[in-house]
């Protein structure tokens, strides 16, 4: 829901340098980025919960009990609902739906954006004009209201349907970025060389262009997953998708409709919301990792103050060569003379 965080619009692949490094080391370098590593670990944790959640849940999420609206305790870690349902189990079981919709919608939207963006950028001409007009239209039309309306016209929208609706409406941003990058890659020498040696268009696209788009595709995928998770939870929260399937939005839906706030039942909506925020943060961190991997300049460098030999500190800045004038050595005579002239 936030503004698209990725800034990699024009990436210049540093040809020889990147190719010289072995693939294995490069992958390690991405994981070595603390942001990306944190994000991947958290994402892995949620994926694990998505798989084993229903088995490790202590209670059946829909089972009622006599413990109505109870605060978190040893028996119910996240407390209970108005029907005595265990919220911890609901969160665990609900993870699967959230991850499923997020990943499926991400895959659908990424596939569409690659298809549309790359072909628009590579083919050019009328095809480019019409395809980019199409993606611009989808970009400008507010996606969430559209998703809400489409999903609410479909009777009994399950997880699969919701994922498809989100996927088919949220590919436009990725397509736009991919088109711009393909345009700049299309006229590179190595692509011309491949064309001159008689490679087919499809081979050029899949083997020459696509590998250089990997980072953009990956960050587009992660961005779409964030958006899809948010949209899905929103749909469940306002009660459009089926309430019978548990996900974090469903929990929030019940919390809202049963006036959890007025009853002071903070445990009802805090865990689900925190889970959403943590998952979203993890995905954003992965995206930052990709951004910084592609353009190292963006890394927030921790040590910008450097102590020089004579004990003074200098702030390092991008694009500047720090000038270390020692304290007792006078500045260059040229400058001094000019100052004198001005004074005179």
């Amino acid at each position: 829901m936030s503004a698209p965080a990725s800034t990699i619009t024009a990436v210049t692949p540093e040809g020889p340098e990147v190719e010289a490094t072995p693939a294995k080391r490069r992958r390690l370098r991405f994981v070595a980025n603390p942001k990306a590593a944190t994000g991947l670990i958290v994402l892995g944790f949620f994926c694990l919960i998505a798989i084993i959640g229903p088995w490790i849940a202590p209670y059946d999420p829909s089972a009622r009990s006599s413990d109505l609206i109870q605060a978190p305790s040893g028996r119910h870690w996240f407390g209970t609902t108005h029907l005595g349902q265990d919220i911890f189990s609901q969160v665990l079981v609900g993870t699967r739906g959230v991850m499923f919709v997020g990943l499926l919608a991400g895959i659908v939207a990424t596939a569409l954006s690659v298809l549309i963006g790359v072909s628009a950028g590579f083919l050019g001409g009328a095809a480019d004009e019409s395809l980019s007009a199409l993606s611009n239209v989808f970009l400008v039309i507010p996606a969430l209201p559209l998703i809400i309306i489409v999903a609410s016209t479909i009777p009994s929208a399950g997880d699969l349907m919701v994922a498809l609706v989100i996927g088919f409406t949220s590919w436009a941003w990725g397509a736009r970025v991919l088109r711009a990058q393909t345009l700049s890659l299309r006229r590179r020498d190595y692509v011309e060389a491949a064309r001159a040696t008689g490679e087919s268009t499809w081979r050029i696209i899949t083997f020459e262009i696509m590998p250089n788009l990997t980072a953009i595709i990956a960050s587009g995928f992660v961005g779409t997953v964030i958006f899809a998770v948010m949209s899905e939870i929103t749909l469940a929260f306002i009660g459009i998708s089926t309430i019978s399937e548990w996900n974090w939005g469903t929990i929030l839906f019940w919390a809202q409709s049963q006036q959890a706030l007025a009853q002071g039942a903070w445990w009802w909506f805090v865990p689900a919301g925190l889970a959403i925020a943590i998952l979203g943060t993890a995905l954003s961190l992965i995206n930052f990792g990709i951004d910084e991997f592609v353009s190292p300049r963006l890394r927030s460098s921790g040590h910008t103050r450097v102590k020089t030999v004579d004990g003074r500190s200098v702030r390092m800045r991008v694009g500047f060569t720090p000038v270390l004038g020692a304290a007792d050595v006078p500045a260059t005579p040229v400058v001094r003379r000019r100052r004198k002239e001005e004074a005179a």
């Binding site: 936030s2 929103t234 919390a255 979203g280």
Partner: peptide
Amino acid sequence: FLSSIPYFWLGL
């Protein structure tokens, strides 16, 4: 982290 929180939940 703040931007990953859904608007409506922050509102709640």
